[in-house]
């Protein structure tokens, strides 16, 4: 099956002459229809630049992007298959209502007025915005504004949806609602590229994970496989008494996380003995092999690549 998104060997360096910053280095990504790829990385790792290259907003120095067979940097037809919600942006016009935004952006994305109008009711209903259809966007809650931004990105039924931090700044309820919507959108066949710092969200809804650091992809595989791969190596240790500062430093250097008396460690059995040594002489009351989570996996991979 041909992937909806096929980005290959993307390279982008900013300020090549003066203090060059290699924002994206040999990044390749692909997403199949109906798949959610969580694109994770620390701040400044190159996530947003990669997303903007895919959307045709930043020109790569080299590499290719294909969206359903079209290159967004050469052919405007590619843009008919992309919807995007970008982080830090309003993404919609705040002086207009949700209905006006949806109708306007529908035409802007290539629909006829009739087609756009036909989609509006459905999207407003689905995103829980029907009652607010005639309220100025500025007066909506942050969660509703974000839901509207996603609805607007979907108005033309794009095959690829780019979501840059869609749950950032939302309360728990709104974030849950957005999470469910993203899952539903993928189930309908849209491909989703999702960046988020909320790794629990990524773990719950993504099919695959790609982790980027300093512009390079350091891991890419199905989410469950990745977690499974690290699960056998995850341990919880509980000890009585206070850890000294030097013990804490030693544990952190080994990649263990210390959290109010509980030490979690993701690593090999050999490494576990080093952790236990570091805890010595505090009495240990529990050691348990734990199911890894994406947060632990992410931190381990990012730290490993930092040490490499």
């Amino acid at each position: 099956m041909k992937p909806i998104l096929d980005a290959r060997n993307l390279e982008k360096t900013f300020n090549p002459e003066d203090k060059p910053v290699r924002a994206v280095q040999d990044v390749s990504l692909h997403i199949d229809a109906g798949e959610i790829l969580a694109f994770l990385g620390p701040n400044g790792a190159g996530k947003t630049t990669t997303i903007k290259i895919i959307a045709g907003l930043v020109k790569p120095d080299s590499g290719t992007v294909s969206i359903d067979g079209w290159d967004p940097h050469r052919d405007a037809r590619a843009l008919r298959e992309v919807g995007a919600v970008l982080e830090g942006n309003r993404n919609t016009y705040w002086r207009f209502t949700p209905q006006e935004n949806l109708e306007y952006f529908g035409v802007l994305r290539g629909l006829s007025r009739t087609q756009a109008r036909a989609r509006v009711d459905d999207l407003l209903e689905r995103f829980g915005l029907t009652e607010k259809r005639n309220t100025i966007v500025q007066q909506l809650s942050r969660g509703m504004q974000q839901k509207l931004a996603i609805a607007v990105a979907l108005i033309h039924r794009p095959k690829l949806l780019l979501l840059d931090e869609p749950t950032l700044g939302l309360d728990v309820e709104a974030a849950e609602s957005v999470k469910h919507l993203v899952r539903e959108i993928a189930q309908e066949g849209h491909s989703v590229l999702l960046t988020t710092h909320q790794l629990d969200v990524a773990e719950q809804i993504s099919d695959r994970v790609a982790i980027i650091r300093h512009g390079e992809i350091i891991a890419e595989e199905p989410t469950m496989d990745l977690i499974e791969r690290f699960s056998g190596q995850s341990y919880m240790i509980e000890a009585i008494g206070e850890l000294s500062d030097s013990q804490r430093q030693k544990l952190e250097a080994l990649g263990a996380k210390v959290d109010s008396g509980t030490i979690s460690y993701l690593g090999s059995p050999d490494g576990l003995w080093q952790v236990l040594d570091a805890v010595r002489p505090l009495p240990i009351i529990r050691i348990e092999r734990d199911q890894a989570d994406l947060t632990g996996v992410f931190l381990k991979l990012v730290r490993e690549s930092k040490d490499a």
């Binding site: 903007k52 959307a55 405007a76 995007a84 830090g88 309003r90 993404n91 802007l108 607007v152």
Partner: peptide, 18 residues
């Protein structure tokens, strides 16, 4: 400023026409 310029750029019409 308001973060809608990218959405204009994502239109198949392109920013000049829009």
């Amino acid at each position: 400023q308001t973060g809608t310029l990218e959405q204009v750029y994502l239109s198949p019409f392109g920013p000049r026409k829009v």
